[in-house]
Design a protein around this nucleic acid. Sequence first.
RNA 1: CGGGGCGUGGCGCAGUCUGGUAGCGCACCUGCUUUGGGAGCAGGGGGUCCCCAGUUCGAAUCUGGGCGCCCCGACCA
Length: 565
Amino acid sequence: MRWSNYYLFTTREVPKDAEVISHRLMIRAGMIKKLAAGIYTTLPFGSRSMTKLATIVRRELDAKNALELTMPTIQPAELWQESGRWQAYGKELLRVNDRNGREFCYAPTAEEVITDMVRKDIRSYKQLPVNLYQIQTKFRDEIRPRFGLMRGREFLMKDAYSFHADAESLDVTYRDMHDAYCAIFAACGLDYKVVEADTGNIGGSDSHEFMVLAQTGESDIVSCDCGYAANTEKAVTGALPAPEVELGEMEEVATPDQKSIAEVSQFLGKSADQFVKTLLYTSENEEVVVVCIRGDREINEIKLANALDVQYPVLATDAQVQEITGAPVGFAGPVGLKEARLIVDPSAAALESFVCGANKDDAHLVNVQWGRDVEKGEVIDLLLADAGDPCPRCGDTMQKTRGIETGHIFKLGCKYSEAMGCNFLDAEGRDEPMIMGCYGLGIGRTVAAAIEQNHDDDGIIWPKPLAPFTVLLMALDPQNEEVSAAADQLYGELQAKGIDVLYDDRKERPGVKFKDADLIGIPVRAVIGKRGLSDGKIEISERHDREKHLVDVGEALAKLVELAG
RNA sequence: CGGGGCGUGGCGCAGUCUGGUAGCGCACCUGCUUUGGGAGCAGGGGGUCCCCAGUUCGAAUCUGGGCGCCCCGACCA
């Protein structure tokens, strides 16, 4: 491709709303352009990267016998009502009406449509398993789209769905997809981690996320050298080391205006890990739940939602706290709260003696003991895991890192097949719901993640497999006939070798071309200028180290082919 | 959903408080010079100042309504 004929316009400045590096670089390098909040046009240069990733994805999935199809992006409401997600998905589901007023939605995912298709086509266990995928645009009306392609509303995703006669068959496909995803991310040259994950509103049992490690990621991961790794939404820990406490009789102490754990901790001279933090939650079913956790730790609200089997637990209002505890916010404790359901995290349950609110204005209780002074209630893990916590498998100290969720695989079980009557006849002639799995991979997000992980101050440093072009051929002074003749010839030869080459034949000054070259980050660069050419040399370098090698004109092609490989 | 901020050529901004008919840098076009790390000089094109209504002789500027966009928060007992 000759740059002079191409649609690639770089910019020196970026819109002020672009904050993360991949977003800035994708705009500056002419890959994407914003149309509306979280909605982007992918320009030709960006499109090439996406296509390269899609090709890798297809190759690895096809190798696992997954079959590509294409489903509509506009889906009828009836299917979503059947699965129950027309209500459950909430505002993220973009709903539209056609000219007759019939309700549709723009697909955020395609479980309903694929399940509807399969229930109509497949009757027998002999036709199972099947694994079907598409690479198709999705729309999710996110609360807060941000970071360009990292969290867009409209985005390109590969989604796959498998159907099985039994759990063993699902296990095999799940493993296949796990391996395919590993192959895909490895092929892209990305530093990634597979972690245990919560299933969120997709539903189902077992689930893993593929995280590209980057500080700008929106997910927290804890991991251990032994191999355990999990999203903090899901992560469990070993028992926390118990703090040393003095034992004594329960006693009320005055703590005027000392509301937060930090304040009371300082006021009483006791560390925060000797406290029990008591929080009141409500949810859509309006039951108030009292939750206790150790004073220095945080509640994982995803775990709480799962424990309560609700969608969104929310903290009780100040008025509700006043009504139930009889005290303003800041003085809640488990002692004497008989009316409400009490859930205690193991971190709090393990305390031999602790400090908590007295359910009375300006007062706390010290030396409280479970069993003696207050019933323990249900002990359920609600802890938000953090760096330094013990690994649940081996007990070693875990680390915390951040990652970008680029892939997510689920064992769905029968959630959709039961709701939608997607059944088959087994060998005994019994009607059974199919067991399902689903597997997502964000195409645009993975490309953004690749940039997040591979760049420097001057621009993108593409991993070769995702690079829009493999070789950038620069003619420094295309007006000079010798230079342009040599460059034209090399360009033709590279094309003949099947190499993706971008030929910078623009009539720009050298400085502009070098800056652009660094910005767009093509892995291999060949520079032809009259200075080198007078000695019969072409300068070849790679973007990742920019080390310059002068190569004889006659050897340049072979060298470039070697580096491109 | 709550809080804050912003909408002025393609991009980044000034002008708004104190109303008088729009400007700067980058980008773009033409010419000359320059040509190995975002050149110089000269000339030039491009804006219903987000939209609607109102006040006024006069509105980018004041008032009201709407739309769009961004950031922060949704972390506490």
